[in-house]
Amino acid sequence: MELNINGIQHHVDVEPDTPLLWALRDDLAMTGTKYGCGLAQCGACTVLVDGQAVRSCVTPVEKVAGASITTIEAIEQDDLGKRVVAAWVKHQVPQCGYCQSGQVMAATSLLRQVPHPTDADIDAAMVNLCRCGTYNAIRAAIHDLASGSTDGGA
């Protein structure tokens, strides 16, 4: 199966129903994307497929062959993604960090759809779980990004 990940074509030899998460982590050793619940409930495994946030643990590779997949490893190659990471650093969002690659992907997807999200928009879109409770820091970082004060070089 051919997968386009972060602009690079990869060949993976897996069953068509293999979750994308396992192709990424086990076959391609891209371990930045995390396994949390395996049931699309927590969001730790979030990646972008054609710009949309998807849960890679419930995405059969068959479904994304031919699509453009972006993982946390390459998020900073994207201007918006780079700004999100910078804001995450500025606001010191991560605590243990396990869920944060998924949070960054979800935030990037939200800001691409809605450049100036309200609190309600953030609540609606950022449904990834964080055991450390970094939700307030996430919200502050997203508002900061929306107001444009965090530049990519920060």
């Binding site: 699309a40 409930q41 998807v54 849960r55 419930v58 939200l110 759809q113 809605v114 999200p117 309200t118 309600a120 928009d121 609606a124 879109a125 449904v127």
Partner: peptide, 22 residues
């Protein structure tokens, strides 16, 4: 189902948060 649209529809937000990924 856009973030702004779904806030006014009962069930739409739950759908996006719990059902849509699969």
């Amino acid at each position: 189902l856009q973030p702004a649209g779904r806030q006014g529809i009962p069930g739409a937000q739950t759908y996006m948060a719990k059902c849509s990924f699969c």
